[in-house]
Design a protein around this nucleic acid. Structure first.
Lengths: 235, 235
DNA sequence: AATGCGGTTAACGAAAGGTTAATGAAGTTA
DNA sequence: TAACTTCATTAACCTTTCGTTAACCGCATT
């Protein structure tokens, strides 16, 4: 089993379980980073891309669910698994509702954990919750997704977070239908009525921002999603 | 919670559990079809699109794993969940290895099942079991079913949802009789007077869209259905 | 000729999309 | 800490789209 490509982050305060899982998952070929304090998670996520997080629910300092929600809001699309000693229904519900992709009850069966991790990772086409940062040509515009700038003939426009993320996604998937579900899942983390409304607002804004090059178009496919049309970079 | 759009297929020989889950999931807003014999699965899957399958592992006549493997081979991308009385590790491994996306041990906690189903469905942006998306040549037209576009000599026509679905179905089954029942079941989900009327309208629209290549014809077989005639792509 | 199926066109209305403005949370500055 | 700023979200309102339904006509089968 070649799991070498996958980077996991384990957040578990219990030393013996943490040690056990580190050993076992390491043996199984995963690249695993184990931390014990929930406060370290966010700084770490900003530095490095992980493929999957494993979070203990019961930890000192910070509630696992709260942490899960924060992660899901900040990095939607980044999958995580909850581990818990508790097995009450309310917990399972809560876990999934904040965006967990799986949920295991202690005592942990390491073998099952590995199987579930592999099953999850093999299904998620995305290997990280973030778009890669690039500078690219969009028609006669130059788009710098890291600095969130859009330049047109020497004039520089600043984009907001969301504008930049959405444009990056559309640009990376140009000339094909991007469904609402796909976009919302990826950028908002959740596909619901309000986020769909929000998406519409941002589509309007991007259209306005891109209107100076008529060769660029964000086309709507009724009931399906959008296609970002741009010339096949021969220009 | 709006689960109305999702179609589930439950394969469970145990009558009391089957009944319980049918009731409970129905109450939760899922459209659920329950069958008891594993042999019925394949014919049903060919007729209708489901979003998710729930399979009992222990059934008379056919092993659940075998069934799972067959489903996975025939309809890759169609997600399914295993239910099992057994809880041995070997089973969990086996379940995931044949393509299952989740695995629950009996006794089933219905609430947890619902939560896991919702979590799964919300993650899979693709409601699979549908037509595969392709770009193909239809006479002198090029049909892109993903982007819902029909191109003729550089000119691009946009298709609506239904137009595109119907054309995709006819193209995939070209040069053979597609009965009304078959088409309506597959694309409208239901064969009744009004949908048959609707089908006629769409046949007219497709004929209009395809009229520029005389080698393409949608032929009517009185009282039976339609045949989409197209040259056997030697061109 | 009678019956009903199929073809065509038009019209309707619900749902989706587009746009602009208001709101309010979080961060920044004074 | 109060006044500003910034920006995503929510609201309000209008326009467009498209599947359905209806109306009507012609043609096939008996």
């Amino acid at each position: 089993m070649e799991n070498n490509q996958y980077k996991l982050l384990l957040v578990e305060d219990d030393t013996s379980l943490g040690y056990l899982l580190t050993e076992y998952l390491g043996m199984k070929g995963f690249e695993l980073r184990w931390i014990q304090a929930p406060e370290e998670v966010m700084p770490l996520l900003e530095q490095r891309a992980f493929d999957l997080l494993i979070l203990d629910v019961m930890m000192p300092g910070k509630d696992g669910f709260t942490l899960g929600r924060e992660i899901h809001e900040r990095f939607p699309g980044l999958p995580f698994i909850f581990l818990t000693a508790r097995s009450m229904k309310i917990d399972v519900l809560k876990g999934f509702s904040v965006g967990a992709v799986d949920y295991l009850k202690k005592p942990i069966d390491e073998e099952e954990l590995v199987v579930r991790i592999e099953a999850l990772l093999s299904r998620l086409e995305t290997t990280s919750g973030q778009e890669p940062h690039t500078v690219q040509q969009l028609g006669r515009y130059t788009f710098d997704s890291l600095n969130q700038k859009l330049e047109f003939e020497g004039e520089e426009l600043s984009l907001t977070n969301r504008e930049s993320e959405l444009l990056a996604y559309l640009a990376r998937n140009s000339n094909r239908l991007c469904t609402h579900g796909e976009i919302l899942k990826r950028i908002w983390g959740r596909n619901d009525y309000f986020n769909r409304k929000s998406l519409n607002v941002f589509i309007t804004r991007l259209r306005k921002l891109l209107e100076r090059d008529a060769s660029l178009k964000i086309e709507n496919i009724h009931g399906q999603g959008f296609i970002f049309r741009m010339p096949a970079n021969g220009d």
